Simulated assay, not measured.
Amino acid sequence: MSMLKTAVLAAALTASAVSGAYASDAATPTTPTPAKNVVLVHGAFADGSGWRPVYELLTARGYRVSIVQNPLTSLEDDVAATRRVLDRQDGPTVLVGHSWGGTVITEAGMHDTVTALVYVSALAPDAGETTAQQYAGFAPTPEFVIDTAADGFGIVRPAQFKAGFAHDTTDADAAFLRDSQVPIHMAAFATPLTQAAWRSKPSWAVIATEDKAFDQAMLVHMAERIGADITRVSASHALFYTQPGVVAEVIERAAQGVRQGE
């Protein structure tokens, strides 16, 4: 199993059927209570350290920022880790997820403190869907290759990490991200969600236009389906690291309940 699409589609064979949600099913955009808390959730093959540039920008603007360290052992474990951080918030909170973290915030975002969701080149399944099902019908991305060990945990193939994950970083930064990546148990992609926070809470999305982990059409489809306010930026899959200013700006708009054009 080398390609992520191959891996997740194989996992999807054991998953439940697609529930068929459309953008009209998403939350009607409303103005959430202004938030001063932000919780950042990393994706697969990464840890929370990559959020530091976004963290520094937001804390400088007066936000209270917390970073989840997902174990990446299962969807349930990652959601539990996120909820533990949400339990510590003292008021309205923007919940932000990158990549696989989008699946996590979709499930965990029903927490009472969460007033807005931000998807950063992120997955956005519906209740009853799996992460794997989001890939169906979209083109594979040859630069993004996953090596899966006998124990079921996968990592981005080191020799192709920069090309597939972070081509717009320096060689040194790409090497750090590569060597600090956290394996994810691939079975997590086959776990159906029990709820979808984007159905009841407003969403924003930042899409990296040079993302090699996802088909662009897939990213746009997911963001449009959930009714997200979409911002595009020229960046790799590591946009949380290479374009922190854009990501922080969108998070701040979500915190204030401001959508583009308003």
Rank of each mutant, 00 (worst) to 15 (best):
Met3Pro: 01
Thr6Phe: 09
Leu9Asp: 03
Ala12Gly: 09
Thr14Trp: 10
Ala17His: 12
Ala17Val: 11
Ser19Leu: 09
Gly20Lys: 07
Ala21Leu: 13
Ala26Gly: 15
Pro32Arg: 02
Thr33Val: 14
Leu40Phe: 10
Val41Pro: 00
His42Met: 13
Gly50Ala: 13
Gly50Cys: 06
Val54Gly: 01
Glu56Val: 05
Leu57His: 11
Tyr63Ser: 05
Arg64Cys: 02
Val65Gly: 02
Ser66Phe: 07
Val68Arg: 00
Gln69Phe: 03
Thr73Asp: 14
Ser74Leu: 09
Leu75Phe: 03
Ala81Ile: 06
Arg84Val: 08
Asp87Arg: 10
Asp87Phe: 11
Arg88Pro: 03
Gly91Ile: 08
Pro92Arg: 08
Val94Ala: 05
Leu95Gly: 00
Leu95Tyr: 04
His98Glu: 14
Trp100His: 08
Gly102Asn: 04
Gly102Arg: 01
Thr103Lys: 08
Ile105His: 04
Thr106Tyr: 05
Thr106Gly: 04
Glu107Gly: 06
Ala108Asn: 06
Ala108Glu: 04
His111Gln: 12
Thr113Val: 12
Val114His: 03
Leu117His: 03
Val118Gln: 04
Val120Ser: 04
Val120Ile: 15
Ala124Gly: 09
Pro125Gln: 04
Gly128Glu: 10
Ala132Asp: 01
Tyr135Val: 00
Tyr135Asn: 00
Ala139Phe: 05
Thr141Ile: 05
Glu143Asn: 12
Phe144Lys: 06
Phe144Glu: 05
Asp147Leu: 14
Thr148His: 06
Val156Trp: 00
Arg157Pro: 00
Ala159Ile: 10
Ala159Lys: 13
Gly164Trp: 01
Phe165His: 03
Ala166Trp: 02
Asp168Pro: 08
Thr170Asp: 09
Asp171Thr: 14
Leu177Pro: 00
Arg178Thr: 09
Asp179Gly: 10
Gln181His: 12
Ala190Val: 02
Ala190Gly: 15
Leu193Cys: 09
Gln195Ser: 15
Arg199His: 14
Lys201Ile: 07
Val206Thr: 10
Glu210Ser: 13
Phe214Glu: 03
Leu219Thr: 07
Met222Gln: 15
Met222Tyr: 06
Arg225Asn: 14
Ile226His: 02
Asp229Gln: 11
Asp229Glu: 11
Ile230Val: 15
Ile230Thr: 05
Ser234Cys: 05
Phe240Cys: 02
Tyr241Ser: 00
Gly245Tyr: 06
Val246Gly: 01
Val246His: 01
Val246Arg: 02
Ala248Trp: 00
Ala248Gln: 05
Val250Asp: 00
Arg253Leu: 09
Ala255Pro: 02
Ala255Phe: 08
Ala255Cys: 10
Gly257Val: 08
Glu262Cys: 05
